[in-house]
Design a protein around this nucleic acid. Structure first.
Length: 720
DNA sequence: TTTAGGG
DNA sequence: CCCTAAA
């Protein structure tokens, strides 16, 4: 807590003089701010996690991100193990999942059976529970109606060929698809009409069709058993079918694991084995940090997406929650795909398929959402690709799948913070030591970081080499790979911004914090920013000209900072999530975004001028002081001057060891104390005069006046 | 808008 | 530096 607080201040810049903060992102004025800051902290906090190692795994899990169902048992088990490991250490993790060209073509029947198997095993084996829920829950969570139906439709395409059609009534199928619980049945049913309409129109696959083709295997008793009783009972007619259907559906997103999405264990752990029925309940049983973040994000994003969602799904008021989760996934998609032209509707559909977990995780990983969702979904389900107009036909898609490199899976447990050298006098307090360290750390973190890659003990400097070329992708080399955070010294960002090393996020992946540290005036200098449209609207207005002011150290580090911010974010974005909140606020549609002014430490000369002016005018006439001594320093407001005086007085009173920032000459500080005492006295006298006729307060005032005057008696006389 | 103070 | 209540 303490640490966090301190960091907070550090990044606010205000209280950590030694750590010039370039900027601060826009945000809403009131309550948001605190939250944002806190979130930001956690990001850095996380970053600062010490000493770590990177695990490199090579897996040949079927990619499929979209193919949803192809999780074989071995994969599940593997994942389970990982899950446990995650539990063991809470440090930062970054994972990418392997994408292999193989196993891409699934036949529905196969898929189905596997799905069932999954269900079964999850029920059977406790060890698998965690993992399976992992998959299932996410399905439940994120998949909204539309998505599901979408999936269904997609399935349909396949199914038709494979199994032909089975009798299943739409009436039974739909409610379940869209319903969240048994109790909601009625509403759902009411809404099924529009939904269906929507579906038909959009994807040209009638719901009826879909329902009709529900595969047989779903009726498997085993599956039914695994399903919560109330779900089954909630459906009075054709329950068997619908249940099977549901199960089937639920199993789809389970595939998600393959998509590489790394969800925080804590996010979904609690849900355990989840069945598709009560979609709502298991959503977020116990909102954890990650979730909160998401909610916040949603809060703002939601408004935009909700209408559409509802249109597509249900107009049920209870739908909010659901749509919110849709939003979440959608939001992720949005962030990673906003460069693409996309049809809203399609976009929505896609979103749920791959992303169920609340994590920010998937983005930034090599198998990015674009690939997984766009590619697979459309590949497997040609209809969608047709509508989207982005994805190649199935055949081509497949081709491209195979031609894609195999992916390497990374897990970064933690980062090592660059070595820091700190010198501090013996007389310093522990508190100040902590502070100093904090400053150093924040300076590093806030001042620009880059990622270093160590391989076999050597730094890999060539960012253009592929993993293959460097040998990193080889299984036996996994131990030889390490990441580190390094203070950034270069002015330009080499590959990260241009092409991106495989380790890093793709440049076009929007990163919330990427532009976060950018200073108003600074933004203009960032020419390579991939997403200019996401800049805050008002930035330009804040560009101040401060030629009149002494250049502060802050100014020097701007460029580095901006260029590197990406690297900085890349890592924590995975699991921290706090960062996610930022963009939401940045884009807050409701109000104007406010940019915090950059910190401009007072130079000695300025302090001198200030003291001089105050000597003349006294405290309490800050406007005059401003006019007199800082009239042409536009960035110094009278409030600033007042604040500076306040801190000057404080500085003068504390021991020199406790002072930070650019040292102010003791002579000046002495004057500050003197002047301050004098004017305080004057003020008191003034008040005494005014209240002379009030006997009660007279004594008090007199005492305080005496105290003040006795302290610097001699000086006062001089001044007078 | 300015001041004064807390954050 | 920010934010605000008061003046």
């Amino acid at each position: 807590m303490v640490l966090q607080k301190r960091l907070d201040y550090g990044f606010n810049g205000y209280k950590v003089p030694a750590t010039p903060r370039a900027t601060r992102s826009a945000r809403k004025r009131v309550p948001f701010r605190k939250r944002v800051e806190d979130n930001q902290i956690s990001a850095f906090d996380l970053l600062a996690t010490v000493a770590g190692k990177l695990l490199l795994d090579k897996e040949s899990t079927p990619v499929s991100s979209n193919t949803l169902i192809a999780v074989d048992r071995s994969t599940v088990e593997k994942n389970t193990v990982k899950e446990e490991r995650r539990d063991a250490d809470q440090s930062l993790k970054l994972e990418t999942c392997n994408q292999d060209g193989s196993d891409r073509e699934f036949v529905v029947s196969q898929l189905v059976s596997q799905a069932n198997e999954l269900n079964y095993s999850s029920r059977e084996s406790p060890s698998l529970k965690n993992d399976s829920h992992f998959g299932f829950t996410s399905v439940v969570t994120t998949s909204g109606c539309s998505e599901r139906s979408n999936v269904l439709k997609l399935m349909n395409n396949k199914i038709k060929n494979e199994t032909g059609s089975l009798p299943l009534k739409v009436e039974t199928g739909l409610p379940f698809m869209c319903g969240t619980s048994g109790g909601r049945m009625k509403l759902d049913s009411e809404n099924k009409g529009p939904t269906r309409e929507e579906l038909d129109r959009t994807d040209k696959v009638s719901v009826r069709e879909v329902a009709d083709t529900c595969p047989c295997p779903l009726e498997d008793p085993v599956v039914l058993d695994g399903k919560p009783p109330f779900l089954a009972s909630s459906d009075s007619s054709g329950k068997t079918h619908s249940c099977g259907f549901n199960n089937y559906l639920s199993s789809l997103p389970a595939k998600r694991d393959d998509v590489n999405v790394v969800s925080r264990d804590d996010d979904e752990k609690s849900s355990g084995y989840t069945y598709p029925g009560p979609i709502k309940k298991p959503f977020r049983p116990a909102p954890l940090i990650g979730d909160r973040r998401i909610k916040k994000t949603l809060a703002s994003k939601h408004t935009k997406l909700a209408p559409r969602l509802k249109e597509e799904t249900l107009s049920n008021s209870d739908e909010n929650l659901k749509s919110a989760y849709c939003d979440r996934s959608a939001y992720k998609r949005l962030r990673s795909e906003r460069n693409y032209p996309f049809k809203k509707r399609k976009f929505l559909h896609y979103s749920s398929v791959s992303n169920s977990d609340g994590g920010i995780s998937s983005e930034g990983i090599s198998s990015s959402p674009e690939q997984s969702i766009n590619g697979n979904a459309s590949g497997v389900y040609p209809k969608m690709s047709g509508v989207t107009g982005e994805s190649p036909p199935l055949a081509d898609q497949r081709k491209s799948f195979h031609s894609r490199d195999s992916h390497v899976k990374f897990r970064i447990k933690s980062f090592r913070v660059p070595e820091l050298f700190i010198e501090i006098p013996e007389s310093a307090t522990v508190g100040s030591l902590k502070r100093t360290v904090m400053e150093a750390v924040t300076a590093v973190l806030g001042g620009g970081l880059r990622i270093g890659v160590l391989f076999q003990g050597k730094k890999v400097r060539d960012d253009n080499k592929t993993l293959l070329q460097t040998g990193i992708s080889r299984d036996n080399q996994m131990d030889a790979l390490g990441f580190s955070l390094e203070p950034n010294t270069s002015q330009t960002c080499p590959s990260l911004c241009t092409g991106g090393s495989p380790m890093m996020l793709p440049c076009d992946t929007p990163l919330p914090l990427a532009r976060y540290p950018a200073t108003p005036g600074l933004v203009n200098r960032v020419t390579h920013d991939p997403l200019p449209e996401h800049h805050m609207p008002h930035l330009g207005n804040f560009v101040e000209s401060d030629h009149d002011s002494a250049p502060s150290p802050t100014d020097m580090s701007f460029d580095k900072r901006t260029t590197d911010s990406k690297a900085l974010v890349t890592v924590p974005a995975m699991s921290v999530g706090a960062l996610d909140v930022v963009p939401a606020h940045r884009k807050s549609k409701t109000s104007e975004v406010v940019q915090r002014r950059i910190r401009r430490p007072f130079s000695v000369a300025e302090v001198e001028a200030l003291v001089q002016a105050v000597e003349k005018l006294g405290t309490g006439r800050w406007r005059d002081v401003k006019l007199r001594a800082f009239d042409n320093a536009k960035h110094r407001t009278y409030v600033d001057l007042k604040d500076k005086w306040k801190t000057l007085v404080h500085t003068a009173r504390i021991s020199p060891q406790q002072r930070r920032g650019e040292p102010v000459p003791q002579e000046l500080l002495d004057r500050v104390l003197t002047v301050h005492a004098y004017w305080s006295q004057q003020q008191a006298k003034q008040q005494m005069k005014q209240q002379q006729h009030q006997p009660e307060s007279c004594l008090l005032l007199y005492n305080s006046t005496m105290r003040a005057s006795s302290r610097c008696d001699g000086d006062e006389k001089n001044l007078c």
